[in-house]
Design a protein around this nucleic acid. Structure first.
Lengths: 236, 236
DNA sequence: CGTGTAATTGACGCCTATCAACTGGGGTGG
DNA sequence: CCACCCCAGTTGATAGGCGTCAATTACACG
């Protein structure tokens, strides 16, 4: 027979979650008038917005903060498929049947729009196209980059997300708090957490970044980091 | 210093292309009246529709056949990010600035719509959402599946694309011609061509598929294949 | 029938996963 | 306020899966 040892090892990182105090808030569509532009709610980090395969009628708009979208295989393997920052939409408008789970990474302000909320088609199309572009970029990372390139790419991407796109070109040192655990990073970059840790250390030894207190990241040489990341020229 | 040996090995499979007689047809927007529903053209397999980073004003609609979208890293590493079948749209409407190259896989009939073509917003949104769903599914494959699972998933996906979605549930043997070389499959599944070949052989030895003349595929046990593929239940 | 390219298969090596021990930082309770 | 605990993170040793290199076979096309 055909022995296929599916590595359900990363299941541990998916099931037993990083933060035990995850609040699963019953976020539901606001009962307000139609055509409202939604109510804004404040959520702590690690709040579950909705689960994979859950029926979701609302569309969510990130006012500030960050949200990750992830998929699970039945044996528990997890892939974080996207990470979103301010301005981005997700939820009902982005996919009729939810195929992902959504969770805040940092304390966030999220605007919740009911099923009858009116977005301009141009806005929706634009958001959908942005999502496709990010997913295609990530496919290249997952399919064709080495572990070191992935980790470097991840740091560049998070710097842009958390410190603004000026991070890409400005040459002052950029710093931000890592809102992802090593296990999250691994599930985003298609690695295991030890490999993420090792390669972060390597980037640090090379003088490209520095990490303090495990989650304070400072990018010391953005140009060098992008080069290691095999970063595509046209981005953002 | 930081030694990063980027595996530009798959460059060979990207640069020196599989079929040397690729015709780069100057497909341009039809000069016909606005609001036309486009002209249909017939193309042989391996016709390049547009290149990565090329300015493309037209939107393409697959009447019949199949098209692959791919991205290249500067060192030549290639990732096939999506494979499309009849009914699908790609080109201008799908992304304002092209970030992918598009090439037919099989002899195809493609409808070319000029920049001012009118698609219903619902149609466009639906196409964009489908693309996102496929890309998310592929991210799970690239980030979290083993080589055997990837190859099995690829065969299931191609069966659906080339033999219709009835392939998924019907229990008669499904057969189709593989329109991808082993090198293409590798660039799609995030592997090298030898690994693809080995795992196809393994699926064959397990009695799940059979391959004749290198490109005649027959799926003998779809249920078993889906199981090996770690195929998600809700699909198509 | 001969040639060129794709595909298969084998041998080997390396990168990343796995397993395990240890370290560090934050929170809590005495 | 400090000591302890718990869990995230780091680092090392080892293993294994997939990539690499190379030789052979199969197939398509003249």
């Amino acid at each position: 027979m055909l022995e296929n040892s599916s590595p359900a090892s990363s299941a541990g990182s998916a099931a037993g979650h990083a933060y035990s105090h995850v609040l699963t808030l019953p976020v539901r569509a606001p009962r307000s008038s139609p055509h409202s532009d939604g109510i804004a709610i404040r959520l702590p980090g690690r709040s579950r917005l909705f689960d994979q395969s859950e029926e979701v009628g609302s569309t969510f708009e990130i006012v500030q903060g960050a949200v990750m979208l992830s998929r699970l295989l039945r044996d528990g393997r997890r892939q974080i498929v996207d990470i979103l920052g301010p301005g981005r939409l997700f939820g009902a408008v982005m996919s009729p049947v939810q195929e992902v789970a959504a969770e805040t990474l940092t304390a966030s302000e999220i605007r919740v729009h009911g099923p009858d909320a009116e977005f301009s088609e141009a806005r929706i199309n634009n958001e959908l196209r942005l999502a496709i572009d990010r997913l295609q970029t990530h496919a290249v990372l997952l399919g064709r980059k080495t572990a070191l390139e992935r980790v470097a790419s991840g740091m560049v991407g998070l710097a842009v997300l958390l410190a603004g796109s000026r991070a890409l070109n400005g040459n002052g040192p950029i710093s931000f708090r890592l809102p992802l655990t090593r296990s999250d990073l691994a599930d985003w970059l298609g690695l295991v957490l030890e490999t993420v840790s090792r390669n972060l250390s390597q980037l640090q030894k090379a003088g490209l970044i520095s990490i303090e207190k495990q989650d304070r990241v400072q990018i010391l040489d953005m140009a060098g980091l992008k080069q290691v990341a095999a970063y595509e020229t046209k981005w953002i």
